[in-house]
Design a protein around this nucleic acid. Sequence first.
DNA 1: TTGATATCATTTGCATACGAATGAGTTTAC
DNA 2: GTAAACTCATTCGTATGCAAATGATATCAA
Lengths: 158, 158
Amino acid sequence: MGRAEVSGEDNLLKLVEADGPDDSDYRLQEQVGFILRKAHQRHVSIFAARIADLTPPQFAALAKLRDVGETSQNQLGALIAMDAATVKGVIDRLKARGLVELSRHEVDKRRLLVNLTAEGRDAVERLIPLAREITQETLAPLSAKEIATFMKLLAKLA
Amino acid sequence: MGRAEVSGEDNLLKLVEADGPDDSDYRLQEQVGFILRKAHQRHVSIFAARIADLTPPQFAALAKLRDVGETSQNQLGALIAMDAATVKGVIDRLKARGLVELSRHEVDKRRLLVNLTAEGRDAVERLIPLAREITQETLAPLSAKEIATFMKLLAKLA
DNA sequence: TTGATATCATTTGCATACGAATGAGTTTAC
DNA sequence: GTAAACTCATTCGTATGCAAATGATATCAA
C-alpha cells in the first residue's frame, strides 16, 4: 500500500529498531485466540465422535429448550449465544428432522415459538449422558483441580 | 422414540429414579464446549473490532508465512490447524487481495507453494502490534497470574 | 390517531470448518 | 519397472457464524 520497501530480507534490522516488544517475537502459537480456536476444534471433534447425528449448536438448542420450554426463536438464540440468522438455520434443520415444532405467538404475531416434539425430548434425554462424557473427555488432559481452575477462568473470558 | 410418557411435566420423578448424575442436573451453561464456543466468539469479535479487513484465520496464515517463509499450502494448513479444504479458501482470498503469491514446486509438481508478497509482508508487520493488543484485550478479564495459569491449562486442552 | 421507533424474523452474502470423493503426481513394494 | 499405496490439492455438500438490508408487527410519543 504505502512505503515501497527494499526487499523482503531486512529482518535483522528490526531487531535493532524496536523499542516496544519486538515484532519478531510474535508467536502465533502462543496467542489466546489461536489456542482457543484449536481447543474449540478439538472439542467439536470429540463431540462428533460421540454424537454423530447432531452438531454442538443443535444439541445446545435442544438442551436449552428442555430447560426453558417453549420460547421464541430469538429468545432461544440469546440463551445459547446465537444471532438471529444463525439460530434460524439451526432450528430449520431441527424442525426438518422432527425434533422441534414451530408455532406463531397468539398475541404477538411476530414471534415464532419453538418447542421440543416428543421425539425431540426423547432425543435430548438420551443424549445427555453422552454429552456428559463429551465434557469429561474434553477435560481429560486436566486433573480435577486443574479443571476447577480452568473452568473458573474460562468463564471469566466468555 | 421408545417409551410413550405421560406428558412433559414429570420432571420431579427423575430426581428420584436417578442413580448416576441426574439428567435434570445437566446445565448447558456450565459445559466446557459451550463456554469454549462463547470465549472463541468473544475473541473473534474483539479481533474484528481492531482488524476489520482481515479475519483471524487469514491473519494466522500471514503470520505463519512470515515465520516460516515459503511453504506448501497443505503444510501451512498443518501449521495453523486448518484442513486442506479450509486453507484453500483462506489462501484464495489472500491471493485475490495480493497478500500472498502462489507457485508450483519445481520438483514435486503436486505442491502449491505459498509465499508473502511485499505487500503481504508489509501488512503483517503493520498488524502485529494490533494482534498483540487483541491478545491483551481478550485476556483483560484476568490478572497476570490468572493469565499464566489459564494459558498453561488451555494449551493442554488444545 | 398517527408517525417514529423498536423488535422479531427472514434473506443475502461472505467466511470459516470439515467429511468425502476425485484427480494428479510421487513413492514403495515386489 | 510396474502396480499399489500414499500424498497434495481441488471440489462438493453441509453447517455454523455474523453483518447488513428488509419486511412485518408492536409500542411509544406527540
